[in-house]
């Protein structure tokens, strides 16, 4: 008996989902015709594949292992110092700066660390921080924005004043101020960025909710006696999601850019596989000349490779976001 009701319920859910599925299919079709969005998706896929396959593409090599004295007990599968979520770069065994060779495809940095290794594992770090920051900030924004927009009044007024303050300061300066009083670590950069990022989402959702709140279907839901929470979660949130989707996609890139900026100016942990920090380390070599195997080099590889990867990552999300915006904007859609 219970299973029969469950089945009936499932049937109803499926029926309810049908128009949405059709809508998603149609969107996918339109997206496929936008060449720039396709390029964006390919770039994102490229980074995701690198991140997933990092242990295969750049396995930690025990013979190169001379761990940073500050990083104890390295795990061979993925060298993370205790208490950290992020992989760390090996320091080279010889402290030799070298240009690209077979065993070091992207050359080595100042203390002989393998740039290729750092860049590959850096993809994982970037994806992790982007998903964490954007995910949590968007969730906070979605919840607070919906409540403020739906209930209005004092709650709304209070939230708007708080977001006014946050939005009046550029997010990178806001985040800078927050990490400055905490200890230096990538986790604190992530924390500061979440604090700096949620108000923009809250404002976006609130605006959407305000315009949807008066629509006929919300009115009829209210007329049949649906409660506030049900209306917010079942009717308002699903229908206000599309501008949010564009913002989230764009921000995946922007957040990584800003986090890299913060770690560039010195908030990151030394040794972590993170592109911004690697570029920062490489930039200190920009005026130097190194003698390696009889030739003089300017060690550009130490910043060019992580720079190229961060660019790929951000460009991918920007292209996809641009494509999604054209797609979801009803004026340009059909």
């Amino acid at each position: 008996m219970a299973s029969a009701t469950g089945g009936g319920r499932w049937e109803r859910v499926r029926k309810g989902m049908r128009p949405r599925i059709r809508e998603v299919r149609r969107s996918m079709f339109l997206l496929r015709r936008s060449p720039l969005a396709i390029v964006g998706m390919v770039l994102i896929l490229f980074v995701v594949i690198i991140a997933v396959l990092a242990p295969v593409l750049a396995p930690p090599l025990p013979e190169r292992l001379q761990p940073d004295p500050s990083i104890n007990r390295m795990d061979l599968q993925s060298p993370k110092p205790p208490g950290s979520n992020y992989t760390f770069q090996y320091l080279g065994t010889d402290g030799q700066l070298r240009s690209a060779t077979i065993s070091y495809p992207f050359g080595t940095g100042e203390s002989g660390e393998d740039i290729y290794y750092g860049v590959i594992w850096g993809a994982r770090t970037s994806l992790m921080i982007a998903i964490t920051i954007v995910g949590i900030a968007a969730l906070i924004g979605l919840i607070l924005g919906s409540i403020a927009g739906y209930y209005g009044g004092v709650i709304d007024e209070a939230l708007m004043r708080v977001t006014d303050v946050f939005l009046s300061i550029p997010s990178i300066i806001l985040a800078l101020a927050i990490v400055a009083v905490l200890t230096r670590s990538l986790d604190n950069i992530v924390l500061a960025m979440i604090v700096a990022w949620w108000p923009a989402y809250a404002r976006l959702v609130r605006g959407q909710v305000l315009s949807i709140k008066e629509s006929a279907y919300v009115e009829s839901a209210r007329a049949i006696g649906a409660r506030g929470w049900r209306i917010i979660f079942r009717h308002i949130m699903p229908n206000s999601i599309s501008p949010m989707l564009v913002a989230v996609t764009m921000d995946m890139g922007m957040v990584v850019l800003a986090a890299a900026g913060l770690s560039f100016i010195g908030f990151s942990q030394p040794g972590v596989c993170e592109w911004g920090r690697m570029i920062s380390a490489g930039s200190e070599l920009i005026f130097s000349q190194v003698l390696y195997e009889g030739q003089v080099y300017n060690p550009y590889w130490a910043w060019v490779f992580p720079g190229a990867f961060i660019f790929t990552f951000v460009m991918g999300f920007n292209l996809l976001g641009d494509g999604l915006r054209d797609l979801l904007d009803p004026r340009t859609r059909r």
Partner: peptide, 18 residues
């Protein structure tokens, strides 16, 4: 324009300096 918003400002600076 897309490159402009996607390239980190510090990479741009390093390219120009280089």
């Amino acid at each position: 324009a897309l490159v402009g918003v996607s390239l980190p400002i510090f990479v741009m600076a390093l390219v120009l300096q280089y």
